[in-house]
Amino acid sequence: MTTAVIASPSELAIKTDGLTKRFGRQTVVDDLALSVPRGSVFGFLGPNGSGKTTTIRMLLGLAQASAGDISVLGERMPQRLGGVLPRVGALIEGPGFYPFLSGSANLHRLDSADGFAPRGTRSERVAHALDRVGLSHAADKKVRAYSLGMKQRLGIANALLAPRDLIVLDEPTNGLDPQGTREVRSLIRSLADEGTTVFVSSHLLAEIEQMCTHAAVMRAGRLVAQGTLDELRSAGATRVSITTPDVEAATRVLLALGLDPGLPDATGPVAASVAGAASAGQPGTILSAALPEAVAPEDIVAKLVADGVRVRGFSVDHASLEDLFVALTGEGFDVVQ
């Protein structure tokens, strides 16, 4: 498979066109064009209130779109809901269970709601799903006595009750301890290995960066970026930094190579590391420049050395997903609602 995101409709697990949701005068989701390739682990990112959950609710036919088209697993939604949803497992905005029933009774109940699920294998499938999320020991305990993390696992078990072509997980690691988070990550990976498309919404970037092949970023109801993780990372510019006492000579070399060097922001973390380097007896200034694709980093070093520039440090830094996320969605709590 190529890295192209725009694939033919049959290769997309989820595709939306102009998807819009309005509540009164407020537009919560605005002209959304999602393309989730089959077999991908797709990270759906965005700050709280950016419209992620509303989008998921529309994808699953819980809420009606104000405008736009949705297709899930190649079928129109919500028109073909009855045929599509049995092939989709979902955890939507936290788990929901009957507190007075045991974990296993809850799964039996939800499985019986799916008219396509064979009754004969129900007990077996429930036990298998509980086992996969590590809840076998608590299967007969009332959900009332479950911890938040256990409820979250039970919610994931519900998504795994039947063989699925697509699994939608909204904030799957909410309330989980670090071990639980790791288990969910490996679970998602094993699902992906089986060929299931996994659509994960989260605001935890490190999580997405560790397990996703693709991602999309929402901001205030709009899609601001979408693609493979590599594509997204390369959208944020790669930069080279050179630590050298010969600032003028180095600048000349970089300009000759077509780079645009400058001193990094004096208040940034880089400046602090300069101060650290200087105190360690290695005086030098850091020059930083965006790296154009045409220039190979090793050529820069070779040219610098050839021109007699004393290079004390050289690094190529890819923008992290977090830099990109903050650049796209704004900083701090004061994000656009």
């Binding site: 699953l60 819980l62 009855g82 939507i92 939800l110 709601a113 799916d114």
Partner: peptide, 14 residues
Amino acid sequence: NTATLRYLLVSPVG
């Protein structure tokens, strides 16, 4: 109220 409604509907119960 128990949030089970959305899970029943995506099961899908119809």
